[in-house]
């Protein structure tokens, strides 16, 4: 070839062409697929909330019919957003702590939790109201925390008494498979069902994830995962920190 491949001019031209080509392809792709991706994330969020309320596997709910079922079981008009004292917000906090317009479903707790620039007092705590299969009112509270390797999250569903846990779902980004990753499994979730989140005098009863795997039954004790101690502790911390906010809200409601 006649072109000198080692000349500066050629190197620069090549580099610029490559960057422009790759940049264009990526930008077009990202812009073109953004709607679909956002949509997928929304459906996933609905699915996570639904799986706390009922057994999605048994009811054959997956991505394809998540939306209609979500509408059936969750009433987004009744969903509210709380601040960290358990008071109802008229909108949602933005990053600077101003209350701006926004809906409970649009709150991205994962992003808020990760963003170190956001003051912890200005996190939003969405609360979803819905109905279970028997038509009884349920409350779903999203949780967010840290596991061993990265973020973990979950949803806890309370019954109409605002106290007994009816169901839960947990998720994680990259916990150790076979150990921490087991928090998504039914045997771990079943440990939560039936527990109460408050004591008899309405004060918050912190959870304890115990590790002896003995089928712990005492109130507020949940079986942990053998070998997944740090993830189990992460779930415990996450549940206690987030649930406490909701308990103060429920207490305000009950005392009124």
């Amino acid at each position: 070839m006649a072109i000198n491949k080692d000349s500066n001019g050629y190197t620069f031209t090549f580099a610029i062409t490559l960057v422009v080509t790759v940049g264009t392809i990526l930008a077009l792709l990202a812009a073109g697929l953004k709607d679909r991706q956002d949509r997928n994330e929304e459906v996933k969020k609905q699915l996570d909330i639904l799986s706390a309320i009922l057994d999605v596997d048994k009811k054959k709910i997956d991505r394809s019919n998540a939306e209609e079922n979500f509408k059936k079981f969750v009433d987004l008009d009744k969903a509210i957003v709380l601040n960290n004292k358990g008071e109802v917000l008229e909108g949602i906090y933005d990053i600077k702590g101003n209350v701006v317009e926004g809906k409970a479903f649009d709150v991205d707790i994962r992003k808020e939790f990760k963003d170190k620039k956001r003051n912890a007092e200005h996190r939003n705590y969405p609360l979803f109201l819905g109905e279970d299969e028997k038509g009884k009112t349920v409350y779903v509270m999203p949780l967010i925390g840290n596991g061993l390797w990265g973020p973990i999250w979950g949803n806890i569903c309370l019954g109409a008494d605002m106290n007994t846990i009816k169901g839960a779902s947990f998720g994680h980004k990259g916990e150790t498979p076979g150990l921490g990753a087991e928090i998504t499994q039914n045997f771990f979730i079943n440990g939560w069902v039936g527990e109460k989140i408050t004591t008899e005098d309405y004060s918050f009863a912190p959870f304890k994830v115990v590790k002896d795997n003995s089928g712990a039954t005492a109130d507020s004790k949940v079986d942990g995962i053998t070998g997944g101690t740090i993830t189990s502790k992460g779930v415990e911390e996450m549940a206690n920190r987030c649930l406490e906010v909701y308990v103060s809200y429920f207490n305000n409601l009950k005392t009124k």
């Binding site: 491949k5 080692d6 190197t11 580099a15 490559l18 790759v22 990526l26 792709l29 990202a30 679909r36």
Partner: peptide
């Protein structure tokens, strides 16, 4: 160009992986 070949290779891998991931995500 041989001087920037490592960068070019890295860019090709990264671009491929990102494309695959974005398409899968959608």
């Amino acid at each position: 160009p041989s001087r920037i070949r490592i960068i070019v290779q890295l860019v090709v891998v990264a671009a491929l992986v990102i494309i695959v991931n974005e398409v899968l995500k959608a």
